[in-house]
Amino acid sequence: MNRPRRSIDWGFPRWRGYAGARETTTVRLCDRHGCDEPGDCPAPKAPNNPDRWYFCQRHAAEYNRKWDYFEGLDKEEAEARARTERQASAGYTEASHYGWAGSGDGSRSSDEMRALEVLGLEADADFEAIKKAWRAKAKEVHPDVNPGDEEAAKQFHACSLAYEVLRQAEERRQWRG
Rank of each mutant, 00 (worst) to 15 (best):
R3I: 12
R3K: 14
P4V: 04
I8Y: 11
D9A: 02
G11A: 01
R14T: 08
W15H: 11
W15I: 07
A21N: 15
A21P: 13
T25L: 08
L29Y: 00
H33E: 15
H33P: 08
C35I: 09
G39V: 03
G39Q: 02
D40Y: 06
P44N: 06
P44M: 04
N49C: 07
N49P: 06
R52M: 10
R52H: 08
W53F: 10
R65P: 07
R65D: 12
K66Q: 06
K66W: 15
K66T: 08
W67M: 04
W67P: 03
D68A: 11
Y69G: 13
F70M: 12
E71T: 08
E71Q: 08
E76A: 11
A80N: 04
A80C: 02
H97G: 14
H97Y: 09
W100L: 10
A101D: 10
S103Q: 10
G106Y: 02
S110T: 10
R114G: 15
L119P: 02
E122T: 09
D124F: 10
A125T: 04
K132C: 13
A133W: 03
W134L: 09
R135M: 15
E140S: 07
H142T: 11
H142C: 07
V145F: 02
E151I: 08
A152V: 00
Q155N: 02
F156H: 09
A158P: 03
V165W: 05
R167L: 14
Q168L: 09
Q168I: 03
R172W: 06
R173V: 00
Q174H: 07
W175V: 04
W175S: 09
